[in-house]
Amino acid sequence: MHVTIIGCGYVGLELARQLREAGHGVVGVRRSESGLRAVADSGADAVAADATDPETLTALPDTDAVVFAASSGGRGAEAARRVYVDGLDNVIREYGRRDDPPSRLVYTSSTGVHGDHDGDWVDEETPLDPTTEKTRVLAEAERVARETAADHGIDGTVARFAGLYGPDRYRLERYVEGPVTEGYLNMVHRDDAAGAVAFLLERDVARGEAVLVVDDEPVDKWAFADWLAAECGVARPEKQTTEERVAAGDLSAAAERRLRTSKRCSNRKLRDLGYEFRYPTYREGYREAIRTYGEG
């Protein structure tokens, strides 16, 4: 199989590594010179292109599958729209006009599109209810990934990632030093985020569908912080209720909506498809970060 990864960054580089290890051909697409060097260092073929600039997309190679994992760089909703909606549409149209388009696309979305469920469980059958401008953009991009791709003869799959963590993104100090707000954490280790996408491609499953990519155990933030503190041998951090955090008065409207959003995401579908997690829960996933913290 030949796979092209658009936006071959944090998850994409690990995906490229796993696919290459399994014997597949991989092209990683980035805009910047430093990004292209990182792709080349991973062993994948590096191609310079920008999803938001259609003229550059003629450089994309023909391929069996496309993974759209581009990032808007943490900027606002308009920047997100340019990348996730317009950029994704550009890539689909570029491939759709070719004589031999890819048979499938995987778009990496976010469980944020499910909005707030007051701590209840959500799965792929739960209606989308995004609560911020950015998550509404992500929901629109999911429609592009499935409907627009289908219009061009490409089967689109949406992989909804929970909160990513892993090397360089453990943010351990945030929880052991506090203060920690209330609510649930839905997480997935970077290696499993990449592993799940590779699994969907290699097993050729979930065409035209959405799949939640989240580990086995959503966890209460306070319980998670106390567990981390115990494992690191430090005092339990200060806790804050949502109302106490809001009362501090330094939150944007979007940040307050995110703070009030609570849900538990189920990975039943991904498990039933047959995926086996490298890090089934945060307990396994944070071991390296805890070891490093202790050494520091």
Score class of each variant (00 low, 15 high):
Asp89Gly: 14
Asp192Leu: 04
Val83Tyr: 01
Gly7Asp: 03
His2Ile: 05
Val213Met: 03
Thr111Trp: 00
Pro280Met: 13
Thr56Ala: 09
Ala44Ser: 11
Val180Lys: 00
Asp116Pro: 05
Leu105Gly: 00
Arg258Gly: 04
Ala235Gln: 14
Val137Arg: 01
Val29Pro: 01
Gly25Tyr: 06
Cys265Ala: 15
Ala194Met: 07
Asp120Gln: 15
Val39Gly: 02
Gly87Ile: 04
Ala51Val: 10
Val3Pro: 00
Arg97Thr: 14
Asp168Thr: 14
Ala150Trp: 03
Glu202Tyr: 07
Pro61Ile: 08
Arg31Tyr: 07
Val205Lys: 03
Val211Cys: 04
Val83Thr: 10
Val188Asp: 00
Asp118Asn: 14
Cys232Phe: 08
Glu256Leu: 13
Ile92Tyr: 02
Gly115Asn: 04
Arg31Leu: 07
Asp89Cys: 09
Leu105Ala: 03
Gly294Ser: 12
Pro102Leu: 06
Val122Ser: 01
Tyr275Ser: 03
Arg190Ile: 06
Asp50Ser: 09
Asp86Gly: 05
Ala210Arg: 02
Ala247Asp: 15
Pro101Lys: 07
Gly96Lys: 09
Val83Gln: 01
Gln240Trp: 14
Gly233Phe: 15
Leu228Ile: 11
Pro179Val: 09
Val214Cys: 08
Glu295Pro: 10
Val3Met: 04
Ala49Cys: 13
Met187Pro: 00
Tyr286Asp: 01
Ala196Val: 07
Ala235Pro: 15
Gly274Thr: 09
Glu244Val: 08
Arg20Pro: 01
Glu21Val: 08
Gln240Met: 13
Glu78Arg: 14
Gly7Lys: 02
Pro237Cys: 08
Glu94Gly: 05
Asp155Cys: 10
Val29Met: 07
Ala196Glu: 01
Lys239Leu: 10
Asp129Met: 08
Asp64Arg: 10
Glu133Thr: 12
His2Tyr: 07
Tyr184Met: 09
Thr241Met: 10
Asp151Ser: 15
Ala145Val: 08
Asp50Glu: 12
Arg174Gly: 13
Val66Lys: 02
Thr58Met: 10
Val27Tyr: 01
Thr108Lys: 02
Asp62Cys: 12
Phe161Gly: 00
Tyr286Gln: 02
Glu276Arg: 14
Thr126Leu: 04
Glu202His: 09
Pro102Tyr: 08
Asn90Ala: 10
Ala65Leu: 06
Tyr95Ile: 03
Leu138Cys: 09
Thr63Gly: 05
Ala223Met: 08
Arg287Ile: 06
Ala44Ile: 05
Asp168Leu: 09
Asp100Lys: 13
Leu88Trp: 03
Lys239Ile: 03
Val137Lys: 02
Val213Glu: 00
Leu36Lys: 11
Val158Gln: 00
Leu212Gly: 00
Arg291Gln: 14
Glu243Gly: 11
Gly25Glu: 15
Tyr107Gln: 03
Thr63Met: 05
Asp89Ser: 15
Leu19Glu: 02
Gly178Arg: 06
Leu128Ala: 07
Asn186Met: 01
Tyr107Leu: 06
Tyr95His: 13
Tyr165Thr: 03
Ser103Glu: 14
His114Asn: 12
Asp151Trp: 09
Asp129Glu: 14
Asp41Asn: 15
Leu273Glu: 06
Leu105Cys: 06
Thr241Pro: 08
Ala254Leu: 09
Arg169Trp: 11
Gly96Asn: 10
Ala65Glu: 02
Asp50Thr: 08
His152Tyr: 13
Ala229Gln: 12
Gly7Ile: 05
Ala38Cys: 11
Glu288Pro: 06
Ala162Thr: 03
Thr157Cys: 03
